[in-house]
Amino acid sequence: MSLHPFAIELLQFVLLLGLAPAFAGWVKILKCRAQGRTAPGILQPYRDIRRLFGKDIVLAENASWIFRFTPYLVFGVTAVAAGIIPLLSVDLPLSATADVIALVMLFGIVRFFTALAGMDIGTAFGGMGSSREMMIASLAEPAMLMAVFTVSLASNSSSLTQMVAVMGQAEFAIRPSLAFALAAFIMIALAETGRIPVDNPATHLELTMVHEAMILEYSGRHLALFEWAGMMKLTIFFALGIAAFSPWGIAADGDIGALLLAFGLLVFKLAVGALIMVLIETGLAKMRLFRLPEYLGSAFLLATLGMIAFFILE
């Protein structure tokens, strides 16, 4: 028995929407454990979101429509991105909407409008956050592209489904190029999702804030949308990493058994991925802002080395 592609699409959409808070909760649990603190339950993010949805909105006097529109747009774009990445099956009708590059650019929209929203009120914090975010993005983007380039070299495509299909069926081989690209990807993903050592999602200190500074003025459902979108973004980046570097197990069609297997593997991979990330986060300290060029430069270097290794060694 197999599911219709549109059903898979819908399933996946719901899955990502629904699973993202749980995943964020899982990360939080791991992190607390790693730091020897008592962890909240895995459902805590759901409760947070629900609570925020219930709250009233306090808006600054001079907030324009950009400010109010941005949360919806951010959420919308993230949700669309969620429909594109093959989580369970390759057979997605919407996956052709965007290849990896377009996907990255979709997050560009999110960033663009978040940064604008940060500047809308006219406080120094918002401007600071926007300015830093755009700088980090501008340095992360080339590195991201090189990583994508390397993977697309291996699979001869920049389309995600195609990558998954090719890589998932390829015979096992040690590929230094992919190893480098993965390392680069992890570094960039940390930067893009605002994790340590690039940004600290759990702080509101002037010196370290980047992402939080932009959405400092938000409240109520706007904030809820931002939070939810952020969780989804984190999950999507993990999914992207899984699709590009460890696609084994993602179903080739809509067969239920395969889908179930894929789901199980996905949960496992996400759990392991979260563990890796938490280890990195716990092991590192937040960097000074102006050390970031070197950090992202190293990511770029790794990605480039991956590409070079592909040409030289493979």
Partner: peptide
């Protein structure tokens, strides 16, 4: 080219943010 694109985005955040947004 990717760098260019990202920098252009940064630049236009700046333009729109400074010219039209804020006070």
């Amino acid at each position: 080219l990717a760098l260019t694109g990202a920098l252009a985005a940064a630049c236009f955040v700046k333009v729109f943010g400074v010219v039209f947004l804020g006070q």
